[in-house]
Design a protein around this nucleic acid. Structure first.
Lengths: 186, 186
DNA sequence: ATCTTGCCTGACCGATCGGCCAGTTTTCAA
DNA sequence: TTGAAAACTGGCCGATCGGTCAGGCAAGAT
């Protein structure tokens, strides 16, 4: 019987992953809007029709590119919900830096989508979770602290873009210093 | 004689300004790439051909939209060049906040162009001046301080986006606090 | 050997883009 | 009043976009 995923679904998953891989690189380099399905297909070594055979449309490709990062963020929000305020803030600072550094490419992509992000249901969850994370990072109900947390996230995301020559550790260290200065935690 | 600008160059300048005005609003709301020449023409109450009669192309419209902000930044860089290091840093912090708040729309537009900004000669001067301003804002040759200045600018620009409900004064005050915390100046 | 299923593709579609041009309308000095 | 310059426009162009569809092709089951 062919059901319940044989071993790794040889061809199916292999092509799908290659498309997502190349789409990520192209979205990061040129932006989502400036990347065509033909560009993705050529980079992945298949035809444009193949891309649309595996994905229902260009937004579906975007969702697949964003999915790993979205899952990590969702998990982080869930974990922070069960902590005390101070612990949640500390976790948010540490883990958000790690996630942003690890998923640099996703940060690039999101920036290019921002002007029309409200009209893209496939990234709604990620955006909502991101705003929730801002709440935890603020650490208090003071509007000023909340705004500073947003300021910090903007700076953090900006720093993760076009950071090709910086190592992950350097980037992590810089963001850690900046966030703690902004939020007055050390 | 018709030369040397009569009083206000009646029709010519009026249409030109209206096009730039509407283009600014549309670029800010939907982004540069998502705005077509037809959109601009319709908003300005003229035809697409008229837009291309006044401007050599879409990038020329962008340049006109960015021009006032670019001029202000260029003037700021020039002024900072004649000051001591500490004074230049203080001027950069204060004036950059003022400019970013005043030209909120331009900040939005620039964000949308970022992935392909290297290929747009009409914004090259503005980008160069912005990087020069980062040097002044850092206040020292310490790479860490320079990175923190970049971090601050990213946060500042991010905060100026989608800030419709915030007043200019609130925005200025927030940015002032954030920058001084990041750069350890008060 | 035949058939079915899943993976893939070339060719094509309508829509929209930035840009161009011939020609019309408006303006204004002589 | 007239005529030329300026301002403006409808219509068209080639290119490219996201997306659809009928069919080719390899592989495993019968």
């Amino acid at each position: 019987m062919p059901g319940t995923s044989p071993v790794t679904t040889p061809a199916r998953e292999r092509t799908r992953r290659e498309i997502v891989r190349q789409a990520m690189d192209l979205f990061q380099a040129r932006g989502y809007n400036a990347t065509s399905l033909q560009d993705i297909a050529t980079a992945a070594g298949c035809s444009k029709a193949t891309v649309l055979y595996h994905f229902s449309g260009k937004p579906a490709v975007l969702a697949a590119v964003l999915e790993p990062a979205a899952a990590d963020v969702a998990e982080l929000v869930k974990a922070a919900a069960e902590l005390s305020r101070a612990d949640a803030q500390e976790l948010a600072i540490q883990s958000f830096i790690d996630l942003a550094v690890e998923h640099r490419g996703v940060v690039d992509v999101l920036q290019d989508i921002l002007p029309v992000i409200e009209q893209m249901p496939e990234v709604g969850k990620l955006v909502t979770d991101g705003m929730q994370l801002t709440q935890y990072m603020a650490g208090s109900d003071d509007p000023l602290e909340h705004d500073l947390a947003k300021f910090a996230i903007n700076g953090l995301l900006g720093e993760c873009r076009h950071s090709g020559e910086r190592t992950d550790d350097e980037l992590r260290r810089l963001c850690d210093i900046a966030l703690r200065r902004l939020l007055r935690r050390g």
